[in-house]
Design a protein around this nucleic acid. Sequence first.
DNA 1: TGGCGGTTTGGTAACGGTTCCATTCTGCCG
DNA 2: CGGCAGAATGGAACCGTTACCAAACCGCCA
Lengths: 339, 339
Amino acid sequence: MTTIRDVARLAGVGLGTASRVVSGKGSVSPATAEKVRRAIAELDFTPSHSARALLSGSTQMIGVYIPLLKGSFYPNILQTIDSELRAADRHMVVAFGREATDTRAEVCEGARFLIERDCDGLIVMSNALTAEDVQEFLRRQPNLVVLNSSFEALADRCFTADHRAGGRLAAEALLGHGHQRIAVIGGPATSPDNAERLEGFHAALREAGIAAEGVPSEASDFSTAGGYAAACRLFERGVDCTALFCANDEMAVGALACCAERGLRVPADVSVIGYDDTPTAEFAVPRLTSVHMPIREVTQAATRMLLNRCYDLGLGVERQFGVTVTVRASLGPAPAMHR
Amino acid sequence: MTTIRDVARLAGVGLGTASRVVSGKGSVSPATAEKVRRAIAELDFTPSHSARALLSGSTQMIGVYIPLLKGSFYPNILQTIDSELRAADRHMVVAFGREATDTRAEVCEGARFLIERDCDGLIVMSNALTAEDVQEFLRRQPNLVVLNSSFEALADRCFTADHRAGGRLAAEALLGHGHQRIAVIGGPATSPDNAERLEGFHAALREAGIAAEGVPSEASDFSTAGGYAAACRLFERGVDCTALFCANDEMAVGALACCAERGLRVPADVSVIGYDDTPTAEFAVPRLTSVHMPIREVTQAATRMLLNRCYDLGLGVERQFGVTVTVRASLGPAPAMHR
DNA sequence: TGGCGGTTTGGTAACGGTTCCATTCTGCCG
DNA sequence: CGGCAGAATGGAACCGTTACCAAACCGCCA
């Protein structure tokens, strides 16, 4: 390891002078600066992050906790965070969820792991998170934002799209195509964002005269296998519907697989609409209609807000995010007669 | 920030004693240790990683460069690396590729970013990597492993499955089902692992009397959209085949979408076989037959080998990885008469 | 009681960088 | 030519931790 001392010695200057050239602060005569720069090049010197971190109290690193990477939802988020951080010349330290069992314990342990690592800030996402957990994290790391969850007491640190509006859009899309007999595959009952999208969905149906009790539903786990199994259960129950709303795209893809295997034509027999509009949706068979979340923008805003808090960068932060429906082949008009 | 000095002061002991209690090394009388432990608890003290890193010269962090996260191939790898690192109580710093343009420049810049961050070791993967690039990284960071590429001069640091064997298996699976008119959708021509799997594939076909020139082929980019477009091009060229080999699952999924839209039944009209056996394959419509890469094991081995190099942990490292075919609905017998 | 081995303890140096202060040097003006 | 302001420079101190050293202390045995 070459240190700045080596640089100073080789250049024949004092420690302070060498440091001033490296950091670019303070005045150094052009001739001296040139000598130092040559020494830096010759020794291939790069300043030690650890030493700088110790002195400045800032590691220039942001911790990110992200649940088990399944499907194409979370990878996109990670990617976006990295883009924003690298643009600001900061690094990302990641901790993942590991199993599906006790995700709440997992996120707490993951956050602890990251906090102890002396990150300058923390981005957390998990639908197993509670407001108390977040408060506890905040006690140890005030620079924290929550992605894809929303807690009223912490509204300014939470970044998420309007899932009630999203659920509502899904319902309206189905109703607009004449569907009346509609079934639902929901996410985990414990997941707040799942609850919100279902709330919006049922609210819109209710306004169209369809009570929630009249809507057959299965709860699942946001996974493709789960969606497949839930769809199978629905059909085995003898549910007779012309449209199926799935609370995320992964489950919708599973449902499509189930339909295909049972000989149900989508959308001729049954329309399917997903949620999130992940990259998977575009090339599903048939192409999947989905509620489009501006997840890139949401993630960007959260990351920038955190960067501003940590480093006072003054980046622009959007707080309103529009939700739309991307219509593809899996949504069609309700069949005139069913079966 | 509470420091070990605060702890020592509160406990009424010297700095060294407090440090000995924290690190657990050196002898401390039970009574004193208890006093210190109480002070630690009261002050909620955690030792500073930066200070430890500066003194020990080790940041306890491993850098990971991973290309643009698309599809379900890379996320799995990332997940596996994280599991292994956390099991060893080490952290992961990540840099992603950003765009598809000039991926080689990207990987170099990403590796530089990670090396300058003082990681203890580096895991790099990208099919745009050259042996010279790796040599250059090694000069600055001797603790380096390459995932999913293979360079002869650096064989001991490269971890990848046998893609020639994988390509061969794909061919044998098709031949075994009576297919003779076979088409191929390949990955980027510049990608060595793509070249290897195609090599194996064509070698097996050649042994069955099918020359490479007689196998219609399109090159694409490993993306779903690319696979879709390539399949369209094949069919528009009027290619008449009973089976289609795609060099990864993403492209295979795109090809399936193309088949569906053109009314081609899979596997009744045309069989499709993918490569990698990513989670996507299982619930594709129809379920996708794919060459199964033991990517979890490969990743695990690479990570452990790096951990051993960095921290002398003596973890077991596998070096041989079996490749198999996961047979699902998309592969069927060749139609007796075509069209 | 003196001496000795072993344990326990406190303080200092060191890691590599930046900041601050004191000193020297330069050029300019009176 | 003397004085002075401002630039340029070198070196010490510091960030928080651990390793090492020396000193103090304990009990034990002769």
